[in-house]
């Protein structure tokens, strides 16, 4: 019996599932990370993922290419990011309330539009989504091949986003400006760079990534759109950003760790479901998110200007 729980770890299916489950979390965590590095908490994440999932799916359902679906999802994410930035960056409204408002707006609009497009479908139709690509030679390697090299293009794209974001944040001039906007906006303004523009661009870029994370669910995982399908993944991503201390490489680690526990939970459920109700397994990701935040809390160093609106000419 105990051995069965270890055997899960030897199963290539478990490791491949971990990689897949990590993808939406990677996009969402990187997106939130970029927003927060610029000094803006984006609680719109859950709704922006929902709208990305809906728009990506619908674009393909209506006959467009898969790649157009991803681009449309990113665009709608950026639009909601612009609304968020308009409120929080330009008007200086409460980031908490704006974020919740964006989540309510983006998800209710998604459901409204989905119901308009498909007035009465009990079983949501599926699309021809991204298919796994078997990378020649590499995918034939024993054990590692099926785990790492038999995924969809969308999955590889998620993992590629990690070094891209690392470069963006750590090496590019735009990333430097983002970090300054989140740490010391006065100094950035003193260099003649518009803090508000940098923050707005960061929120739009981050929101686009969140929406792409949502689109992953409808275009590479479930291949259909369901009501409530984001299911708290956005909130988990916010916890992961804190757990990752606002660093992209640690965000990848956190996302993989969580995905691994989630994939393990599903399989352990089949073994222990008879004596532990399945709801307790489903609770694990949320409970662990809280624990991850407690562990990270001691060393947490929030971006200094997070939550503080910047108004030109006003001193803080």
């Amino acid at each position: 019996m105990i051995l069965d729980f270890f055997e899960i770890l030897l199963n290539t299916g478990f490791w491949a599932a971990t990689i897949r489950i990590a993808c939406p979390l990677i996009f969402a965590t990187l997106g939130e990370l970029i927003c927060e590095r610029a000094g803006v908490l984006n609680l719109g994440i859950e709704g922006i993922m929902t709208v990305g999932a809906m728009v990506g799916w619908t674009t393909v359902y209506l006959g467009a290419e898969l790649s157009s679906g991803v681009i449309c999802a990113a665009l709608i994410g950026a639009i909601f990011g612009l609304i968020h930035a308009h409120f929080t960056v330009y008007l200086g409204a409460s980031q908490h309330v704006t974020g919740i408002g964006i989540t309510l707006l983006a998800s209710s609009l998604s459901y409204f539009a989905f119901r308009l497009i498909l007035p009465s479908s009990t079983t949501p139709p599926k699309i021809d989504a991204f298919q796994p690509i078997h990378i020649p030679i590499l995918s034939d390697i024993g054990f590692l091949g099926p785990i790492l090299f038999q995924h969809t293009a969308f999955t590889y794209f998620a993992f590629l986003m990690v070094p891209i974001t690392m470069w963006l944040i750590n090496k590019s001039p735009f990333g430097l400006a983002i970090k300054m906007a989140g740490e010391n906006p006065m100094a950035l303004e003193a260099q003649g760079i518009n803090v508000l523009t940098i923050r707005a661009l960061a929120v739009m870029l981050g929101s686009a990534l969140m929406a792409v994370g949502g689109a992953y669910l409808t275009m590479s995982a479930f291949n259909a759109f369901y009501f409530g399908m984001i299911n708290g993944r956005g909130w988990i991503a916010i916890a992961l950003v804190i757990f990752a201390s606002w660093r992209p490489q640690q965000a990848l680690f956190g996302a993989l760790l969580f995905a691994g526990l989630d994939a393990y939970q599903v399989r352990a459920q089949q073994l222990a479901g008879a004596f532990i109700p399945y709801q307790f397994f489903l609770m694990l990701p949320y409970v662990l998110s809280i624990f991850a935040m407690i562990i990270a809390a001691k060393k947490t160093r929030y971006p200094k200007a997070l939550l503080i609106p910047f108004r030109r000419g006003e001193r803080h």
Binding site: I83, F87, L91, A93, S94, V97, T98, I100, G101, I102, L104, L105, S107, S108, L109, Y111, F112, R115, L116, P119
Partner: peptide
């Protein structure tokens, strides 16, 4: 014959317009 989610949209817009 309009989706009921319209009410949720009104609620969300209310939150955001109060902020503005």
């Amino acid at each position: 014959n309009v989706p009921t989610y319209l009410a949720d949209v009104v609620v969300a817009v209310t939150v955001l317009s109060v902020l503005v």
